[in-house]
Design a protein around this nucleic acid. Sequence first.
DNA 1: ACTAGTGTTATATCTTTCTATAACACTATA
DNA 2: TATAGTGTTATAGAAAGATATAACACTAGT
Lengths: 124, 124
Amino acid sequence: MQFDDKVPIYYQIKNYLYHRMVAGELGLGDKLPAVRQLAVDLTVNVNTVQRALREMIAEGYIAPQRGRGNFVTQDAAKIATLKQQLTTTYIQDLYGQLHALKLTDAEIIAEIKAYIQHRGDADD
Amino acid sequence: MQFDDKVPIYYQIKNYLYHRMVAGELGLGDKLPAVRQLAVDLTVNVNTVQRALREMIAEGYIAPQRGRGNFVTQDAAKIATLKQQLTTTYIQDLYGQLHALKLTDAEIIAEIKAYIQHRGDADD
DNA sequence: ACTAGTGTTATATCTTTCTATAACACTATA
DNA sequence: TATAGTGTTATAGAAAGATATAACACTAGT
């Protein structure tokens, strides 16, 4: 994984894991990869992984079991809420940015549609 | 202005000024506020402002005149390109994020429309 | 010449993030 | 009861970003 050097790595790891949870790649109650394994996979230090997990644990998305591993919460509603939160936040940010650039609502939607259209010509 | 503590302040200042340039609040050839004034307005150190300006100068968006002030480039095409770049980057980011959350193209557009609709009920 | 307004640069110090390394604590299984 | 796999914590050092403070360089108007 490649990181944006403008944002703390531990923070990006949090978001990465949240994404995988919301996307269902890490299901309810699933065991996460071992911290040392995550550190190797992400090419970062164990402490950095732990920093991310610590916060996710504090927020209740991950339940740690000493000696056994870290597990995704069983709370489906919590994940659903997270998905909605992330979605809204991203859209809110985009809208704020483009609005600041003086694009109208119509232009914003048009630009997005154009991007998706244009994108269909390629992969995915 | 309030800063996101997850991103370097100098970097946020750059984006803030780019936005103002693209939005036309800082027109072609306009003089920017004095660096010390900017520092006061943004509640930030002069060196931090200078760090942002230095990069913008290197990128050719600002032309400094020692003893007189900093001036927005006269190159209209450069600003137009910047606007397009910023717009595309933001949309690309949003799409990438929501796609990673497993939202379909249709859902993405629907969510954005819903947000804008819902937003019309309020301010602006 | 002086002065006020401007950009530019430098130093020392603090905080946050990240790293390498190591040790400690617990679980499960051979 | 060893041992391998796991989470947890600590220490010391490096690097980046900000800060306060100060000095230097140039321009324009008096």
